[in-house]
């Protein structure tokens, strides 16, 4: 039970949603965009967040799109994870989101919610990073299209009131050879120890990781180490560690163990693709 009241709006037009947000804001209200709502509800219940207006975006066609047009895959921010898995339009993404929470919750969590939520792992972003996804965002000034690395750098670069509309992915990249593995402490339904996603595109290996640092990342520096002709995992693993931009997560599992697991996963990636 959520211990406070709020109003609920469910617009069908994307501009209505954005305008409503700014209107409520101007009235000194605290609106939130609402996709699957799984995290909003659970955090509200324990008093971690408070708001007085909810704008549910699931009725907005653009946010609910899941299609392929002109060799580009479009996935709306309000598409539930299980639909991404069942459609299999982007196999790496399908496999990645299939390991977020559990199947029933996947019927509720949306891709946008996974990426914009408070939980640090945000595994849904990994395939999008690898596939150079384009991200469209709306605010009062109109629609903006960003490259994925502009949209996400340690955290989503999205300001209050901006609405994440959809992701668009080049089908060629989505169809590249790929690898995904989520390692957990013990229980399958758990946050990751380490999740890696990788694709091989034009002979180069692209790699994105969640669970190692406080945020999911893709690192050009690490990819250049791995893609070097002379690369040897045992010898060069320290270079990879040194190239990390932040401290390795220590809670729940030690940093050393996470690195141990990372190395095993890198070995598997190099073997598989």
């Amino acid at each position: 039970m959520i211990p406070f009241d709020f109003d609920y709006y469910k617009p069908s037009a994307i501009l209505d949603a954005v305008n409503l947000f700014y209107k409520l804001k101007a009235e000194n209200k605290t609106p939130v965009y609402y996709g699957g709502g799984t995290e909003i509800i659970s955090r509200a219940r324990v008093g971690n967040i408070r708001f007085d207006s909810v704008i549910d975006i699931k009725n907005i066609a653009e946010c609910a799109c899941l299609n392929i047009e002109n060799e580009r895959i479009n996935i709306g921010s309000a598409v539930e994870l299980n639909k991404i898995t069942e459609s299999n339009v982007f196999p790496l993404l399908a496999d990645t989101v299939k390991r977020i929470a559990d199947h029933t919750v996947q019927c509720k969590i949306t891709l946008g919610g996974n990426i914009l939520g408070n939980i640090k792992y945000k595994e849904g972003i990994l395939p999008l990073m690898l596939a150079d996804a384009k991200v469209s965002i709306l605010d009062q000034t109109g629609r903006k299209e960003l490259n994925i690395n502009e949209f996400f750098n340690k955290k989503p670069m999205i300001e209050e009131g901006q609405l994440l509309e959809k992701f668009s992915i080049d089908k060629k990249l989505a169809d590249s050879p790929w690898y995904h593995c989520k390692e957990v402490k013990m229980e399958k339904i758990d946050y990751p120890l380490i999740t890696v996603a990788a694709i091989r595109y034009r002979r180069g290996l692209r790699l994105a990781v969640s669970g190692l640092l406080e945020y999911p990342f893709r690192s050009a520096e690490i990819e250049s180490i791995i893609n070097n002709n002379q690369f040897d995992l045992d010898r060069d693993f320290n270079n990879i560690i040194n190239a990390l931009q932040g401290a390795v997560i220590k809670d729940k599992s030690s940093d050393k163990y996470r690195l141990f697991v990372l190395k095993k996963l890198l070995k598997a990636i190099l073997r598989e693709i």
Binding site: Y8, K10, G36, G37, T38, I41, S42, V54, D56, K58, N82, H103, T104, V105, C107, K108
Partner: peptide
Amino acid sequence: MPIKSCLMLAVE
């Protein structure tokens, strides 16, 4: 489809 009703608002 299965849904955990604790994570859905009744209005939804």
